[in-house]
Nucleic acid binder design. Structure first.
Lengths: 152, 152
DNA sequence: ATTATATTGTTAAATCTCTAACTAGTTTGA
DNA sequence: TCAAACTAGTTAGAGATTTAACAATATAAT
């Protein structure tokens, strides 16, 4: 009999993700998705002028998925996409001023929910949990590149 | 500035969920989804003869979502749905023999992947992580029932 | 009893993510 | 140099999940 602890852990993780995403999205501006915010935040923190594929890799989603996300962000004027001057296949993704503002607004709106969380859990609780989660993530990520790894 | 540890943790959880789900699904029989397996497993472990709404609550998904899942399972002959004899609104969900077999087969197929995980991580690693995850899940779950809680 | 409120389950529309398949450039290597 | 193999990005199709809105039944309250 396989360890039920593993199932249980993955199950909890799945539900947490579901609940947190829903809660998150309900707080975000307009029809903004968690994935949209994540990309904006990523570009602010690590710098923009990145290719779609590199962003997809960073979030470990498929390229078609990131194509979708970027197209939505572009349609809202939150990012700007230009051809890569060096690599004819690639595109470069830049933040617009509106994109930066939207990211700031999203963070401001997230504030209260984070406060509540911080009131209920200490930063140490999260810090204590992180190493295991990172290790698990890294393992699954490495695993992924083994068999018929598809369209990334 | 809000604790980035919180963001980081939720981010890791999101990616783990994504990678684990995809890996999971690739191993499951046919076009079986993780959510389908979860419901079958739930019914085997806790007993069938349950209403759709109660199953939806157990997994913390919306009713329409569970309607979809149950309809797919029923279309494959893995569960059987009958009207509730007492409550005219409700339906009762039962496992079929095929459903039980499918659940067993899924678990068998999951085996190797779980083995690998168990080789890389000890059961104690998971046991150590669980309390925090459960607490977090419970908190988010309780939070959910506060504002404009919709269609559950 | 009757009315108001809550619960069960479904349909519809929107969006996400995935896999499969394809186009177009780039690198590698014989 | 040139073909093979790889990488960037898109399109198309399928299924999941959410919110909104409803129909039908049950429960509570007056």
């Amino acid at each position: 009999m396989a360890d039920p602890v593993i199932f249980e852990t993955l199950n909890e993780i799945g539900i947490i993700n579901q609940l947190a995403s829903t809660k998150f999205r309900n707080v975000l501006p307009d029809g903004m998705e968690v994935s949209h915010f994540s990309v904006l935040n990523h570009l602010v923190r690590l710098g923009d002028d990145r290719t779609l594929a590199s962003i997809a890799r960073a979030f470990q989603v498929t390229k078609p998925s990131m194509t979708n996300t970027i197209q939505r962000l572009e349609a809202r004027g939150l990012v700007q996409v230009t051809p890569d001057p060096v690599d004819g296949r690639a595109k470069r993704v830049f933040l617009t001023q509106a994109g930066r503002m939207m990211r700031d607004e999203a963070i401001a709106r997230l504030g209260p929910a984070i406060e509540e969380l911080a009131a209920e859990f200490s930063a140490d609780d999260f810090k204590a949990a992180l190493p295991f989660l990172k290790r698990l993530r890294a393992y699954l990520d490495a695993e992924r590149d083994r068999p018929g790894s598809p369209n990334r």
